[in-house]
Nucleic acid binder design. Structure first.
Lengths: 117, 117
DNA sequence: CAGGATCCAAGATGATACTG
DNA sequence: CAGTATCATCTTGGATCCTG
């Protein structure tokens, strides 16, 4: 692979990070933060369909992983922004979403065929 | 965003594909197939820790999405390989894994600090 | 080898309500 | 606003057994 890490091995520390990052909510939240720092409620609005609970939990783990930085500005004003590591990963994730957009026509066609079969 | 699709909207068809693709098993399976086509048992070995059941399910949905092509060579010999769409997405996913490898040192450090706090 | 069927534990998730 | 606590539920994922 690239060197010391191997995401295919369940024992490699990189595996758990890959698992964390390639989960539905973490992935979407990271991409959302890529655009700009978000406040809690703001992030909830950006990422459609996420509940307060999941957003809270997701942000907590991302902060624990050092991918997101939480800053308490007081006055009930908290901001979440990407760390350098988080930015690096979020950019890659955005690439995945972009790739999905690229091939959506083919995917929709494949699904249509599957559905009609 | 890029155009007609918006993964942040729960209603956009791209959202479900992004969800599918950014799940632990699908992501790892796609990356595994990026290297070369795999037979069933072969894929199970490559992706450490996956059970037959999950591999079967995962491959089924990936085939349904048109990202993976299943070819039955008879004689109990089946091969799974990426379609053009799948290859495009898998490449992007590999980028995510690579990005994770890149920042693993920082992540491990962050976790260590969090654990000792 | 390929993979479906069944059973079941554990965790993910959402809605709601509540706190500072 | 920024969360946390609780509850009910749905899904995930593994183990095991079975078929062709």
């Amino acid at each position: 692979m690239t060197g010391a890490f191997d995401a295919f091995s369940p024992l490699c520390p990189s595996r758990s990070v890959v698992d964390d990052v390639t989960d539905r909510w973490p992935a979407l939240v990271l991409i959302a933060l890529l655009e700009k720092p978000h406040r809690f409620a703001e992030a909830a609005r950006t990422v459609g369909g996420i509940s307060d609970r999941m957003l809270s939990r997701t942000l907590t783990t991302l902060v624990a992983d050092g991918l997101v930085v939480r800053t308490d500005h007081g006055e009930q004003h908290v901001e979440y922004e990407l760390s350098a590591s988080g930015h690096h990963i979020a950019t890659a994730l955005k690439g995945v979403v972009t790739a999905v957009y690229d091939v959506m026509p083919e995917i929709l066609q494949a699904k249509a065929i599957a559905a009609s079969a």
